[in-house]
Amino acid sequence: MNWPPMLLQLGIKNRRNHIRLWIPLFIVMLIAFVFVLLLAPFVLITTIILWPFGWGKPLLLGGPAIFRCLCALRGLKVDIKEGNQLILISFI
């Protein structure tokens, strides 16, 4: 499994704005990790309640699956230019 992306580079350029942002995802992930730890007991209780209805398994395995997707985002790059307009999204 890959390491999750550490930085997100965002770039938006049009006639009015020219924004280029470097978002430190490692800090965002640390905050998200704390939230996940706090929510974990509630998720477990909800999983037990919803297990007979068939929604327990997706709820329980959803977290790791989403984390896997997050890790796989490293290397994703979307770069669209048209005239003076530009959109750039890059996970590093």
């Binding site: 290397g75 994703l76 770069d79 669209i80 230019k81 048209e82």
Partner: peptide, 12 residues
């Protein structure tokens, strides 16, 4: 003219 450059990791 429009220029698009998209790179999607296979792992994704």
């Amino acid at each position: 003219a429009e220029r698009v450059n998209v790179r999607v990791p296979i792992s994704l």
